Amino acid sequence: MRLKDKVIIVTGSTMGIGRAIAKKAASEGAKVIIHGLEEDLGALVVSELGRENARLHIEDLAIEGAPQRLVDLALESFGRLDSVVNNAAIVAASDIHTTDKAFLNKLMEVNTYAPLFLIKSALPHLIESHGAVLNIGSINAWSGEHNLLAYSISKGAIMTMTRNLGDSLFREYGVRVNQINPGWVLTEKEIERKREHGLADSWYKNLSKIYAPAGRIIWPEEIAAASIHWLADESGPISGQVVDLEQFPMIGRNIPKDSSTIPHK
């Protein structure tokens, strides 16, 4: 078991990628702090993992003191803290015309500021355990779709933060900081967004290979499987790295001439 007895906070873990990471981490022996906004879904995850392996914290990370309360719960429940997975994020459409200061601030607070301050709150305990941080970004960090402007800005910022802290925290304290940039993943929220766009719930079953060369998009469990390596000691001294998990290269991709706008990711 690659995470035996490690204690890990996974934000945004009541559903989607975060839920898959939490469940995979527990299957590898970890104790997990489940976090999100959906109390019923979070309680279900804790029930699946067992109270001996998981605790639940429901709170908006933008609220003052929320990061410290997550850390405190980990310490009170399991006596230590080994890793933080910053997965919680707001995915919201906007472009240059619809992005105002308040909207951008809202996304930055949850997607960028909250991960930074959770790392800061957790740092004394991560130093003690020689722990690790895994930030869950997005391939939109590289430039982003035209209608994901604010979201892409927030993910570009966290990618820079990962590289900065991955160097400084590892050099000074031995705490590793790495990042995964998922591509298009089939989460509950993605199904909900497509439903709001008027698509049937089966939209993902017949995707063009322009968008999904494999004939399907990525499952949350596949992102979770990759995450375990960065949380486990097997990843060694590697820090400050950003890994894209998508079906095609984000830089240098050969876009077919008949392609149109890439769908939301």
Results as ranks from 00 to 15, higher is better:
G174P: 07
A66K: 01
H97W: 13
H146E: 15
I228S: 03
L116F: 15
A200T: 08
A88K: 02
N147L: 03
Y173T: 00
L41F: 13
S13Y: 09
A132I: 01
G16F: 02
H264V: 12
L199D: 15
N206K: 14
V133C: 09
P67K: 01
G12M: 03
T160I: 09
I58Q: 01
S129C: 09
A74Q: 09
V32P: 02
T98Y: 07
S94W: 00
Q241D: 12
K24T: 15
D258C: 05
R69H: 15
N254W: 13
G29C: 10
Y204V: 04
L165T: 02
F103H: 11
D40E: 14
R216P: 04
E190F: 11
N135I: 06
Y151R: 00
H97E: 15
G42E: 05
A20P: 03
G29H: 10
R253P: 04
S121R: 07
P124I: 06
G16C: 05
S260A: 12
I262H: 13
I9S: 05
A92L: 10
L75S: 10
E188F: 07
H197V: 01
W142L: 14
I17A: 04
A88M: 05
I223Y: 01
S227D: 06
K101T: 14
L231K: 03
S168T: 14
G240D: 15
F78T: 01
G236Q: 13
A232R: 01
A25W: 08
D95W: 00
K24C: 15
S94E: 03
K120W: 12
I9Q: 03
Y173I: 04
A62Q: 04
V85L: 09
G236F: 11
Y211E: 13
N135L: 12
L107Y: 02
S202F: 12
K120D: 15
K4L: 14
A30I: 07
S259H: 08
K155Y: 14
P237Y: 14
E39H: 07
L104E: 06
E48C: 07
I218L: 05
N164P: 00
P249I: 09
S27R: 10
T112R: 01
N181T: 00
I191K: 12
R193N: 15
E246V: 00
S13C: 10
K265C: 03
H35N: 07
L3G: 08
G12C: 06
I119S: 04
V175Q: 02
L118D: 01
V175F: 08
A66M: 05
